[in-house]
Amino acid sequence: MVLFCLAWEVAGRIPINVAFPPFSDVVAAFGRMVADGSLPSAFLITLQPLVIGLVVATVIGIVMGVGMGLRDELEWAGVPVFVVMQAAPMAALIPLITYVYGIGLTAKVLAVVILALPVIALNGYKAVRNVSPSLRAMCRSFLGNRRQEIFKIVLPDASPMIFAGLRLGISAGFVGVVLAELLITPTGIGDLITYHRSIADYAEMYAVIATIILFSAVTVGLLERVEIALFRPEKKEHSA
């Protein structure tokens, strides 16, 4: 990590390109933007559609994914659609969303949802399909009913993969919100990037971009912690 920062500093000082500021300038710019409040307030604006979109995508995605995993007809109808959605560049639809839903919150939430939903739903589906058949047989042989089988065996056994889907969904959601802010209306983080680029404050621009990338990594890492703390007792208590 230190090595990387040093390399950046050296490369910036040489300089390779006028638009490539040294690391120290970027850190200073970061400090300035936190101090004048522009960075925190931009984050607040960006987080709003992100959080709403992710909550929507998570709820719909998990319900649909688990449904497709449990029922053949839902699998038949749903899985090919989600496979196409996940493989296809859904970002192409963002301009369309803008021109239909305007430049407000709805459009940005939708951008987050269409990017995050497919991966969450597909992971939920695969997770349910990969539940150990022997555990399900065990539940049936000890007279568990369908409800018990789903809530006591299928969902707990599927939860690691569902969470993996959520992590992918969160990073897709970040892509969605940043794209929406760059493409639709310059607000929040997107606005900061566009603005500082237009007035050639490259250090500020790098600081914003690095912050959003780190922020997304931290969020994803945090989710992993939460998952282990809440749902994986066997990982928490005895292993280091």
Binding site: M1, A19, F20, V178, L179, T194, R197, I209, I213
Partner: peptide
């Protein structure tokens, strides 16, 4: 660490930088 970071990072935020460079 870096590969793991970038594999899930919102790289679209980097596109403006690439455009400048």
């Amino acid at each position: 660490m870096w590969v793991n970071l970038f594999v899930s990072a919102p790289l679209s935020a980097l596109v403006p930088v690439i455009m400048i460079l």
